[in-house]
């Protein structure tokens, strides 16, 4: 009896604390959404003042904001394409082949994920300065591809490891050529992992501040814009971008979940 009461309290207690912690995590997002409808009393104020739709109807009002968002999208898109291609090829090699250099390659992939961004950012800057490479769009892109590759490899490899090898064997048994097997069986099965890796790359690239800060020269991405604006007063439109990002990401995640469930039901 005593045990049961203890259990009952323990159950509710843990869930209660868990939900409080989730509230702590959710609070800033709610504030960002709220501030996107705020007309601040002055340039440097972060307090909620007055409801308005102006920020949403005039997102590009603050000079340079939309240019910065556009630049982040461009860099994010290119970094995603490069990193996804390079990383997927590596994932296939690691998941499907045993070879002499495997442990070394695994270390090479692991290290960028374990190194503080601060160290990667400053080291790239040292390289570019030593090599007299002009800082800007292309140096940011190079850096972003670098730190995205490892995450792509890990994501795609996890998907490949969970795949049923017998499907490919069956295709081979039915006289499919290696290329046909890859095109018709392997690639479609690996695709959800590749898509997940691409989305992850984009969000990592789009949101990166520390590494970009050291290697951007005068090029301004969205996080760089917010950082710079912090000195002069952040325009409320920044919260519109933040809210829109959140909504898009949430929709993407929920959509993939619905698809996944539907897929599971069919299977």
């Amino acid at each position: 009896m005593n045990y049961r009461i203890g259990r009952w309290i323990a159950d509710r207690w843990v869930m209660g604390v868990g939900l409080l912690v989730l509230a702590y995590l959710a609070l800033p997002i709610i504030v960002v959404a709220g501030l996107s409808f705020n007309r601040p009393s002055n340039r440097l104020s972060y307090d909620f003042n007055e409801f308005t739709l102006d920020n949403w109807t005039n997102v590009c009002g603050p000079a340079g904001l939309c240019d910065a968002v556009l630049r982040s999208v461009q860099i994010g898109f290119l970094a995603t394409v490069f990193a996804t291609v390079l990383g997927t090829l590596m994932a296939f090699a690691l998941a499907r082949h045993k070879f002499f250099a495997r442990p070394a390659v695994n270390v090479i992939i692991f290290l960028p994920m374990a190194t503080p961004e601060l160290v990667m950012g400053t080291s790239l800057l040292a390289l570019f300065v030593t090599g007299s490479v002009a800082l800007g769009f292309w140096t940011i892109l190079i850096a972003h591809v670098m730190f995205c590759i490892s995450f792509v490899v890990v994501t795609v490899k996890a998907r490949l490891a969970g795949m049923d090898a017998r499907l490919e064997e069956a295709a081979m048994d039915l006289y499919a050529t290696p290329f046909q097997t890859f095109r018709r069986v392997t690639l479609p099965l690996a695709l959800p992992g590749i898509v997940a890796a691409a989305l992850l790359s984009f969000s990592l690239s789009f949101d990166d501040f520390i590494i970009t800060n050291f290697n951007s020269g005068t090029t301004v991405t969205f996080p760089m814009y917010v950082w710079g604006a912090n000195q002069r007063g952040v325009p409320p439109q920044v919260n519109v971008i933040g809210t829109a990002m959140f909504a898009i990401a949430l929709l993407l995640v929920l959509a993939t979940n619905v698809r996944r469930r539907r897929g599971a039901r069919v299977a």
């Binding site: 997002i29 949101d207 919260n239 971008i241």
Partner: peptide
């Protein structure tokens, strides 16, 4: 969910 929005924007929300 916090990672769905920008690191800097959500940190600025703490200022409010």
């Amino acid at each position: 969910a916090p990672m769905f929005t920008s690191f800097l924007v959500r940190t600025l929300a703490w200022k409010t």
